[in-house]
Design a protein around this nucleic acid. Sequence first.
RNA 1: GGGCGGUUAGCUCAGCCGGUCAGAGCGCCUGCCUUACAAGCAGGAGGUCCCCAGUUCGAGCCUGGGACCGCCCACCA
Length: 837
Amino acid sequence: MSLEDRTRWEPAEAEPRIAERWIASGINHPDPDVGGEPFSIAVPPPNVTGALHMGHALNGSVQDALIRFHRLRGRPTKWIFGTDHAGIATQSQVEKALAREGTSRQEVGREEFVRRTWAWREEHGGIITGQFKRLGCSLDYDDERFTMDERYARAVLEVFVALYEKGLIHRDTYLVNWDPGLGSAVSDLEVEDREVTDTLYSIAYPLVDGDGEVVVATVRPETMLGDVAVAVNPHDERYAGMVGREVRLPLTDRVLPIIADEYVKTDFGTGALKITPGHDPNDFEIGRRHGLDALTAIGEDGRMTELAGRFAGLPAAEAQQAVVDALREEGLLRAEEPYTHVVPFSHRSGERIEPLISLQWFCRMEELAQPAIDAVRDGRVRIHPPSQEKRYLDWLAEIRPWCISRQLWWGHQIPVWYRGEETYCGIEPPEGEGWERDPDVLDTWFSSGLWPFATLGWPEATPELGAFYPTDVLSTARDILFLWVARMVMLGLEFTGDIPFRDVYCHSVIQAPDGRRMSKSLGTGIDPLELIEQHGADATRFGLLAMSSTQDVRFSEEKIAQGAALANKLFNASRFVLLRAQPVEPRPMGGQVEDRWILSRLHRARAAFEEQIAAFDFSKAAFGLYDFVYGELCDWYLELLKGREFDEALSAHLLYVLRETLALCHPIIPFVTEELWQQVPGTHGLLAAHTMPPLEGAVDEAAEREVETVIAVVQAVRSWRDASKVPPGERLEARVDGLDGLAALVSRLARLELVGGDSREPVATIPVAGLQVELLTGVDPQEAARKAAAERARLESEIKRAEGKLANQGFVAKAPEAVVAAEREKLERLREELEAL
RNA sequence: GGGCGGUUAGCUCAGCCGGUCAGAGCGCCUGCCUUACAAGCAGGAGGUCCCCAGUUCGAGCCUGGGACCGCCCACCA
């Protein structure tokens, strides 16, 4: 497998082999006592039974770039690894499996169901671990956490108990978002609005005392059985005098008061609103304001309750039809019209949310939110990009109670027991007989809110916690900024007294190439593993980072291909160097101008890369590497030095530049750089474990100017040849004054035979970079004349523009002097060039 | 209903404080197997910077208005 025989970088063969070496080497598992300035990241824990999707792949690329970047700079790095039990998602997977077996969770019972879920996790968990390894992620696989592990679970209960004892957690009946598909309450954040077209029914409620009626409108007529009042706006003249009177609730023998509330809009519908606190969030609020009961007409099972009288037991949808029919029969149905509006759907099950009154656990958030607001306001936690910071602050400023109980079986069961009127909250079960534990479990985000510190052993003061907390960066898609990030900040501050991370980086969401969301159900998903398979992990990482931005981006496979091209380019450039250089210790000792130039450019590339990583600008960082490797190292430096003897000085210099280039690129394309690193004489061990010393030498502006001149001249001659139909290979005699030491380089790359002291008239002149390239032979005079005429026209028009600008008194008077001077110089130069023609 | 962002080459995107800012990659055209790479090299063509006003000596860049496209928050029956 010598380098001679491999003209292409084959990631499929090399990458898995390299990944294994990294893992075996132990670099991913740092010693907390090693000292130094640790750098840590807690990975957003994927669902334990999940698989790598595009978001994971991008986020993994981001975090791994950061981890490797800082490890290369000598910091002990820990990338905390683990998975989330993902209550709802996992439970529904197992429920589906049970359904396939023809059974159900209710049938097997809770204990067996939980056992089955653990077994499911054994069987299907860990897939994503292997996928992260394949992507090259330097996660601490030896120290894997799971949110349901015994230690972690204990931390969760400890937090619950502490918040309970502090009075922040309480139990209350409340109107919650009931997900009928799940049979559980879900939080506001797990609900999405969808537009649907319903029928809006107008129903007459007859007045009790005499003639007349009040007409109300609703899309949910069946909920009228839970009505407790009719509300009108106090300023609505149509209903003046109505307030305080009563109506009869049709289909029942109940009587409802007419109340006044500012909430009711006078310009919408009939201006009268039926109040159903048990099934509508606004009505719930109004009901509380007026001291009205919240009646439940629809139960958690989706069927009508006893309150519904003759409709009791009917599923809500059927009841709706029955109620409408009954109303029509009684002549109380005043109108039916189609009505399009947005209604909440469960993000989880996709079913329409049924607002229901139920007994749930809530966490009061204001006291937790304030410190989390302060932490961002005063810059202890920085959110990138800043637009997300605004979202975060706005959300926290208007935070509402968090419903933390879920009617699931898979999760952390709430540590509260009841016995008659008694309630006990504690980590350990209460003493004595007859206690019954609350059946609900905690919202998954409650446990993942502890992720950055519970993973490190909190509440125990472990060495890991001391060394790696607070973590440095939290990288995530912005869709879980509230769901997860804000809660980590709140809980971190509350329980550790410190922020959980210093920087929050919100990466792009990658959309399908057509701009739609990437999703399995839409069929728009792209499997990152297929990309890795096809182009390599390096290419995939590069491409994803190159695509990323501060906003959503469309997926483009070209960027992945560009990454593959870069890996291949680096591989071949390295072959070129390694197959020619003498095996000497790499060090900068090249004496030619191009040697100083490339080292200078490397300095700049490295400085720019460091700035871009610090600014979380991964796209620029990736393209910066590409431009350096392609545009400078390969296109020019390696070409400029061809023809030179690979003596010790050049060998050492080349190897130095190569070695440092590999180290520079490693955070983004770790595999190919690791593989090549092994071939560079004088390197020891893994590049992944290497500490980069400061770069030797310095920016050399003189060398940069000289090589810029060479490049400009060569490009001008090539371009001229192309336009003049002079074959690129044909050697032309030419005269260029002022090239001095650069003559040899220009001569070779531009294929010119440079002659001095020759007084022949040039057949063509190419002005470039303040020099004149005068061609003496090989030119068709007519072509040359045409070319010159075109060039003259171009120069004349530019001169005209510059003259016009300078003739403008306003410009000369008001523009900064430097700008005016630059314009004058430019004009001068253009005139000279024209003169030379 | 509120908030945020976007609109630049055929495609995907860069363009900091207004003055070399009209760019990159891919695609396309032309020519090259130049002793690392044809998944390569060299050269080139392509744009009314969404529209309309305005500020300015000067506007993709700033201001106002408009159009279109996203996203987030908000539960008017």
